[in-house]
Design a protein around this nucleic acid. Structure first.
Length: 216
DNA sequence: AATCCTATCAACCGCCATGAC
DNA sequence: CGTCATGGCGGTTGATAGGAT
C-alpha cells in the first residue's frame, strides 16, 4: 500500500492558493482547530491535500507570523544560530518568534549565503574558504572576525578585500566577541560566541561537540 | 519598448521520525 | 516487533516581479 498521493493525480488542486481557499482554511481552523491534517481539507471543503493545507497554514496564514523584511538583529541571530545548528531551519525558526523555517531558509539562501560567499566565507562551515587562504594574514583575520561577529557584515558592501587593511584592522580591534549569545531550550546560556574559539590555523580547527549533532 | 537576466519566495517533493495498532 | 498513517523537515523548483541592457 502506497502513501496517500498529494496533488493532481488524486484530483486535488496544486499551485498557488486563491484568496477563497485561504478564507476557507482560516475559517475552518478558527472554528475547529486543525486537528487531523488529512481529513481537514475534506471537512473544510478544499480540493487540497492535507500536507498542502498544513504548509499553507504554518508558512503563511498563521496569525502570529511576522511578515516583512528581517531586522538586522534577526539577521545576526540567524547567522549565529546557523553557525551552531547548520541547516536546522526549524530549530532556528523556533528562536525567531513570528518567523517560519521556510522564510528563514529562503532568506538564508537568497541573502545571507551570498553575503558570506562575497566575503570569502564558506556558508556551510562558517570558516574562510580554503581557496582564499592565500590572502594576507590581516585579511584572513578580518574574515575570521566577520563570521564570528556578524555585525561586521553591515560593512560588507564597502569592504574591499586586500585594499583596506588598515580600516579592517581598526574594526578587528574593536570587536572581540559576538553580540548574540546562544541559549538552550531552558534559556540557559550555552555559549557566548567569541572569536577566541577559533584557531589561527583552520587546518587544525575542529568544531566543538556542543556545536555539532551532539547538541541538537 | 522589448528582451534578457536576476532575485525572491510560495509551494511542492521526497525522505525520515514517531506513534498507533 | 512489524506495518502503516501522519506530521514534520530540508532541499528544490517554478512563477513572477523588478532591474539591466
Amino acid at each position: 500500500m502506497g502513501r496517500a498521493l498529494c496533488g493532481d493525480k488524486n484530483g486535488l488542486k496544486k499551485g498557488p492558493w486563491t484568496p477563497e481557499e485561504d478564507k476557507k482554511l482560516i475559517d475552518y481552523i478558527q472554528k475547529h482547530g486543525y486537528g487531523n491534517w488529512r481529513t481537514l481539507p475534506k471537512n473544510a471543503g478544499l480540493q487540497r491535500c492535507g500536507k498542502s493545507c498544513r504548509l499553507r497554514w504554518t508558512n503563511y496564514l498563521r496569525p502570529d507570523i511576522k511578515r516583512g523584511r528581517f531586522s538586522f538583529e534577526e539577521e545576526e541571530t540567524i547567522i549565529q544560530l546557523h553557525s551552531i545548528l547548520g541547516n536546522k531551519w526549524s530549530a532556528i525558526a523556533a528562536r525567531l518568534p513570528g518567523r517560519t523555517d521556510n522564510e528563514i531558509k529562503n532568506y538564508w539562501n537568497t541573502h545571507i549565503r551570498k553575503i558570506l560567499l562575497r566575503m570569502g566565507i564558506d556558508p556551510v562551515t562558517h570558516t574562510p574558504r580554503l581557496d582564499l587562504l592565500g590572502l594576507s594574514s590581516l585579511h584572513t583575520q578580518y574574515l575570521i572576525q566577520s563570521f564570528a561577529n556578524p555585525e561586521l557584515l553591515r560593512n560588507v558592501d564597502q569592504y574591499q578585500p586586500l585594499t583596506q587593511s588598515n580600516h579592517c584592522h581598526a574594526q578587528v580591534e574593536e570587536t572581540q566577541t559576538c553580540s548574540v549569545p546562544f541559549y538552550n531550550e531552558e534559556q540557559q546560556l550555552v555559549m557566548e560566541p567569541n572569536v577566541n574559539q577559533f584557531p589561527s590555523n583552520f587546518n587544525d580547527y575542529v568544531m566543538p561537540s556542543i556545536l555539532t549533532e551532539d547538541y541538537v
